[in-house]
Amino acid sequence: MADVSLGGAPQNVAGIQSSYMAQVQRRRLYGGLTLLILVVLMVSGFNVADDRNAGGFWEGLHQIGDYPADVVSEAWAKRADLPGLIAKYFPALVETINIAAVSTLIGALAGLILSLLSTRGLAKWPRLIPLFRRFSDIMRAVPEIVIALVLIFVLGGGPVPAMIAIAIHTAGALGKLFSEVAENADLKPVEGLASTGATWSQRMLLGVLPQVAPNYVSYALLRFEINIRASAILGFVGAGGLGYELRNAMAWGPGRFDEAAAIFILLFGTIVFFDQLSSHYRNRLTEGQAQ
């Protein structure tokens, strides 16, 4: 009925109907235009991307299965070696997971501090809230690869540059999510603690953290999942771990496809395993909260 009152309250049914129809038509027109713009953008974007690609989409489409088929057939032919190769690359996998785990730990800790400092009502220095927010925005905006590549130049290859790069991004991303949770925290325990003369860190540790911990852990687990993928990708640009081994195996080309296959299997298995694990625990955490 809101339509009627908006349309200057025509009294008769025909008036109501016509103004309603006009409104519907206008909405359809806008919806259609938006859709049209989206379609035009997508089609022209696709053409641009297709033009600037080395191989075209339509020529490449039927080759899409060639490489996986080669890898699978070669891996199948040498299937006896596969367990050995998986064992060989297992340390690289551990490194990839370690990078993700440490960067999540450090990033979550930094994100925790950032979030408390940038939440209204909790911040130690309320005037600096915008500063800390911008700070975590910038940390979030820098893609991991930028920091990783620069640090690889300075520190040399290996897991440390990737760890620092992912930790910085994690701190920014979690800082934002954490602060959204902390905004909804009940301030009464904090006030109670303040009345006993507790310091800021005591108020946060005893008054806020117990309230937000389930959500924080849940977000950190989700981030861990994302960071495993990121750490594998960063390996590909020289930061160690499974991605690095994959690049080397790819560079050797045919004849070593069994190594690539072993790495694919390890990576796939790890990602699926940690996805399931983290979603299981996240469900438990959020269910526990609802009760």
């Binding site: 641009v48 991307a49 690609n53 080395a54 075209g56 490449g60 489409l61 080759q63 899409i64 490489y67």
Partner: peptide, 10 residues
């Protein structure tokens, strides 16, 4: 996909 389509934005 890079094997099928070559390097590029696509």
């Amino acid at each position: 996909l890079a094997r099928a389509f070559g390097p590029g934005p696509l």
